[in-house]
């Protein structure tokens, strides 16, 4: 007969019947208070957003019609539209993309794939790029204003001037997001390419960049949508103008949707406020579409390796 040893007694003592009362240690009063606080914060944020959206929608929907796209601004609210502002936004954002995207992607490729991280100047550049993304937008407007003045340009409210200001504004964002996309490409892919005798440049062009493209596209779209909603730097360039013609080139005068909205809200008549709300809905719709596209690209390209 086996003796009841101390080891066996200890093993028996560890045996437990699991409680089935449904009570959990997660549900102490303290944790409940914490959970309620979290919910409350979420509720405040969400309610504010919903209130804003509903208010804008209720205000703006009556004027969200064809006239908003086809008519020029006017002193008579019933005839006014945002046609030059919509077209101006397209012109400025298009030019911004052409200026900033190649430059930003190229800078990121250099920093991530070629620059020697042990050199102090490369580290200095890295730190400064991170800092630049936190600089207020209006500073970039002043920078563009100053540059244009130096170049002797008298008419500063031109498409290319606005694009330079917005381009500088989003350049750090594009560089940072592109670097992250490049960093996400596995080292093994580069090694595989180099091991068959490809050069660094060929590896970057044919393997690393194509593999990082979805990430780059996502970051770029988000950056451009930020530029699209920006008013401050353009106001500084004199974007608050009353235009009765379509912008038709890089040197054309322009206004953009955020500026048009700002302009209408500062009018005394209530009808203009309705117009501002309608234009806001349009702007939000475009931004939602852009951000949705970015999220779609990101989700579709996940877990490829």
């Amino acid at each position: 007969m086996a003796l009841y040893t101390p080891q066996a007694a200890a093993a028996d003592a560890r045996r437990t019947v699991l409680t089935t009362s449904g009570r959990s240690r997660e549900r102490t009063p303290r944790s409940l208070v914490f959970v309620v606080l979290l919910w409350f914060s979420l509720l405040v944020a969400f309610a504010t957003l919903v209130a804003l959206l509903v208010h804008t929608l209720v205000d703006g929907l009556p004027r969200l019609d064809g006239r908003l796209f086809s008519e020029y601004p006017s002193s008579r609210p019933e005839e006014a539209g945002a046609r030059p502002a919509v077209l101006g936004s397209l012109w400025v954002i298009g030019t911004t993309a052409v200026l900033a995207v190649p430059l930003g992607v190229a800078a990121a490729v250099h920093l991530e794939e070629f620059a020697d991280r042990d050199k102090w100047w490369n580290r200095l550049i890295e730190v400064n790029i991170s800092n630049l993304s936190a600089v207020p937008a209006i500073i970039y407007g002043m920078l563009a204003l100053g540059s244009l003045a130096l170049l002797g340009v008298t008419q500063k409210n031109i498409v290319v001037g606005g694009a330079v200001a917005l381009g500088m504004l989003i350049l750090p964002v594009i560089i940072i997001s592109t670097r992250e996309a490049l960093r996400a490409v596995p080292r093994e892919l580069r090694d595989g390419s180099l091991a068959v005798g490809a050069s660094d440049l060929q590896t970057t062009w044919r393997i690393t960049l194509p593999a990082a493209l979805p990430g780059i596209a996502t970051g770029t779209i988000l950056a451009l949508s930020r530029a699209l909603g920006e008013a401050a730097p353009l106001l500084l360039l004199g974007g608050l103008v009353f235009l009765s013609f379509d912008p038709n080139g890089l040197l054309s005068q322009f206004t953009t949707m955020p500026i048009q909205i700002f302009s209408w809200t500062s009018q005394p008549q209530a009808e203009f406020h309705t117009l501002a709300a309608a234009a806001s809905i349009l702007l939000m719709g475009i931004l939602l579409l852009m951000n949705g596209t970015a999220i779609y690209i990101r989700n579709r390209s996940q877990k490829r390796w």
Binding site: P186, E188, L189, D191, G192, S193, L194, A195, V196, G197, A198, S199, I207, P210, A211, R304, W305
Partner: peptide, 19 residues
């Protein structure tokens, strides 16, 4: 080194086909 790697190829621990 590019010429060296072209003559002396390498297969890695984890399969790493290109996308």
């Amino acid at each position: 080194p590019i010429e060296v790697r072209r003559r002396i190829g390498m297969v890695f621990q984890k399969p790493n086909p290109f996308p």
